[in-house]
C-alpha cells in the first residue's frame, strides 16, 4: 500500500505538468530537432535531401562576407530595441497608471500596435515613409526639415544609416504596448499602504519610486524584458516588410539573413538558425545572470 501511494505521489507532478510537456515536445521540440539535423544535410532548393554535408553548411555560412557585420548588427538591434522599450515602458506605465479622465480610452489606444499585426504595422510605416507620398515625410516637409518630397532626403529607408533608426523605432513602437501593460499589471499588485507608510516617512517621489516601486516591479520587468529580448531577436516582419534587409545586407539581422538564405540554400539557412539559436541562449543566460532571475522569477 505504502509503496503504491508513493508511486502515485511521484506521478502527481506529471498530472499537473504533463500536458504542458507533451504540447511543448510535440509542437516545439520536434521541429527544432529537425532544424538541427537539416543544418548538417545537403538539401536542394526544393527540399530534396541529397545526403550528409558534414559541417559544410556552417563553413559556408561563416565564410559569407557579410556574416560578421550581420551578427554585430543583430546584437545592436536587440540591445537598442529592448533597452529603449524598457525605458519608455517604465515611463508610460507610470503615466498611464495615474488617474485622469479618459484614462481607459487612452489605454485602449495604447494597445493598438499590439493588437494589430506586426506585419501590417511595418507595412503602414513603410507607406508613411514613402519618399513621394509618405505622411511622415509630408510632416517633415511642412515643419521645414525637408526641402521637397521624392528625393533621396525624403527616403529614410533607402540608406542604412537612416533606415536602422526607423526600424528600431518601429520595433520599439510595437514592443512598448505589451511591456507597458505588463508593468501596469505589475504596478497594480503593489499594495497602496506601502506608499502611505513611505510618504509618512517623508520620502521624496523619486526616492519612493527607486526604493519601493522599482524593486517591486522587477519581477514583471524582468519577465517582460526577457520576452522582448527573444521576440526582438527573432523579429522578422518589421525589417522584412520595411527594407528586406536592403540596401545590400546593411539592415539585415541574423533572422532576416536566415530567411534570405532559405531561398538559396536550405542547409545553410538551417545552420544560420542554429547559430541564431545559440546566440539567443547566450543572450538569455547573460540576461538572467545580470538580473538575478532565479531569485526573483522562479
Amino acid at each position: 500500500m505504502r509503496h503504491r501511494s508513493r508511486g502515485l505521489r511521484a506521478l502527481e507532478p506529471l498530472a499537473w505538468v504533463g500536458p504542458a510537456i507533451v504540447l511543448i515536445a510535440l509542437v516545439v521540440l520536434w521541429p527544432v530537432v529537425e532544424m538541427i539535423r537539416s543544418s548538417f544535410l545537403k538539401i536542394s532548393k526544393f527540399g530534396v535531401v541529397q545526403g550528409g554535408n558534414g559541417t559544410a553548411n556552417y563553413d559556408r555560412l561563416f565564410a559569407e562576407p557579410d556574416f560578421a557585420s550581420i551578427m554585430g548588427r543583430t546584437l545592436i538591434w536587440v540591445v537598442a530595441v529592448v533597452g529603449l522599450t524598457v525605458i519608455i515602458s517604465l515611463a508610460l506605465a507610470q503615466l498611464f497608471n495615474q488617474r485622469f479622465p479618459g484614462r481607459k480610452i487612452a489605454r485602449w489606444a495604447l494597445i493598438a500596435p499590439w493588437a494589430a499585426s506586426v506585419l501590417m504595422t511595418a507595412i503602414i510605416f513603410r507607406w508613411m515613409l514613402d519618399p513621394e507620398v509618405g505622411v511622415i515625410n509630408m510632416i517633415r516637409r511642412d515643419l521645414g526639415f525637408l526641402d521637397a518630397l521624392g528625393g533621396a532626403s525624403a527616403d529614410p529607408l533607402g540608406q542604412s544609416a537612416t533606415a536602422m533608426p526607423w526600424l528600431i523605432f518601429v520595433a520599439v513602437f510595437v514592443s512598448v504596448p505589451f511591456t507597458t501593460y505588463a508593468l501596469i499589471a505589475g504596478l497594480s499588485t503593489i499594495p497602496g499602504d506601502i506608499y502611505e507608510a513611505a510618504r509618512m516617512d517623508g520620502a521624496s517621489k523619486m526616492r519612493i519610486y527607486w526604493a519601493i516601486t522599482f524593486p517591486l516591479l522587477r519581477p514583471a520587468l524582468t519577465v517582460a524584458a526577457l520576452i522582448n529580448v527573444m521576440n526582438v531577436f527573432n523579429n522578422f516582419p518589421i525589417i522584412w516588410a520595411m527594407t528586406r534587409g536592403q540596401p545590400g545586407y546593411s539592415t539585415s539581422t541574423s533572422t532576416i539573413f536566415m530567411y534570405i538564405l532559405k531561398n538559396r540554400d536550405i542547409g545553410e539557412s538551417a545552420a544560420m538558425s542554429v547559430v541564431n539559436f545559440g546566440m539567443v541562449i547566450i543572450l538569455t543566460v547573460v540576461f538572467l545572470k545580470v538580473t538575478r532571475w532565479r531569485s526573483e522569477v522562479a
Binding site: V28, W30, P31, E34, L226, F236, T255, I281, T284
Partner: peptide, 23 residues
C-alpha cells in the same frame, strides 16, 4: 521543466516552418 519552458520561449515558429509542416 522550467528550463524547458525557457528554451521554448526562445523559438519562433518562423525559424522552423519546414519541420512544422512535415510534422
Amino acid at each position: 521543466f522550467l528550463f524547458l519552458v525557457l528554451i521554448t520561449q526562445m523559438f519562433q515558429p518562423t525559424a522552423m516552418l519546414v519541420g512544422i509542416y512535415r510534422e
